[in-house]
Simulated assay, not measured.
Amino acid sequence: MQEPKYRRVLIKLSGEQIKGTDEVVSYDMLDYLAREVEAVHRHGVEVALVIGGGNIWRGNQSIARGMDTAQSHYMGMLGTIINSLALQDALERHGLHTRAMTAIQMNEVAEPYIRRRATRHMEKGRVVILAGGTGNPYFTTDSAAALRAAEIHAQVILMAKNGVDGVYTADPRRDPKATRIDHLTYMEALNRGLAVMDSTALTFCMDNNIPIIVFNALQAGTIERIVMGEQVGTLVSRA
């Protein structure tokens, strides 16, 4: 039986990826994502998840209307916790053992994030959902994904996108001449301003040599194919 290429992965999801057409959270999308994670977990791969909160709270819009930036960011962090609990429930309905851990202490809802405890949960076969961003304003959930990946020694960050199967030379939804790039260095992505993740997170990944694979979250089976070593999407790495 083929062995997985990656034994410990961190999957970064956006809040929009669990949003339905007319609802904040789509049960169908939660079920779909749970099945995708289950397929990977079946191979003995240790999985951590970080999810955004954009389906609940759009911080930039509130800041543009005059809300204090830190206040808005904390509200966004709470949105990520709501999404994480919804995802946890979907995963457990598929028979997976999970732990939700938060950067903002909320003991009645989830465990506080402790690095060694998170890695131990993963070693025991539990899917760990890391909520609340970094626990600090001014940092996105992209930065949280990069930081947590370094802390738990994930071999790769799997960066899920909606309807886009990698990094392109331009937005393929607007420019029909845009072409997909199979491989980029961190510096190329930064210099060209390509949509991998925010620049703070990307620089952190470069400094800590954490590879990133950008893929289409809506193509069933893609995460499993990546974990098993198939070249899918765009790889961003040192060389």
Rank of each mutant, 00 (worst) to 15 (best):
N83P: 06
V45N: 02
V40Y: 01
R180C: 09
G79S: 12
G66C: 03
I63A: 08
M187S: 15
A90P: 00
T222N: 12
L96N: 04
R126D: 13
I212F: 08
G20K: 07
V24W: 03
D207W: 06
A48D: 04
D89L: 01
I152E: 05
V156G: 01
E16A: 13
Q71A: 13
H94C: 09
G76S: 10
V214K: 00
N136K: 08
A103K: 01
F204T: 12
I104K: 00
N162E: 14
R180M: 15
N60P: 04
P176Q: 07
N60L: 13
H183T: 15
R7G: 12
D31K: 13
I114M: 11
R99T: 10
G229V: 11
A195C: 07
I212C: 05
D22V: 10
V156H: 03
G229K: 05
L147Y: 02
N162P: 10
E230S: 09
G53C: 02
E224T: 14
N216K: 03
I11S: 04
E16H: 09
A118E: 06
A90W: 01
Y6F: 14
R93V: 09
K19G: 08
R93I: 11
R148T: 11
R58V: 05
L218A: 01
L91H: 04
G132E: 06
I226V: 13
H153Q: 13
Q71T: 15
I223N: 00
R116Q: 13
E23A: 13
D171T: 06
A154T: 09
D31L: 06
L218H: 07
K19N: 08
G20R: 05
N83R: 07
M101W: 00
N209Y: 13
N83V: 07
V24N: 01
F139H: 09
A195K: 15
D68H: 04
A86I: 11
R192M: 13
R65H: 12
A131D: 01
Q105V: 12
L10I: 07
T141P: 05
A146V: 10
R117I: 10
V232R: 07
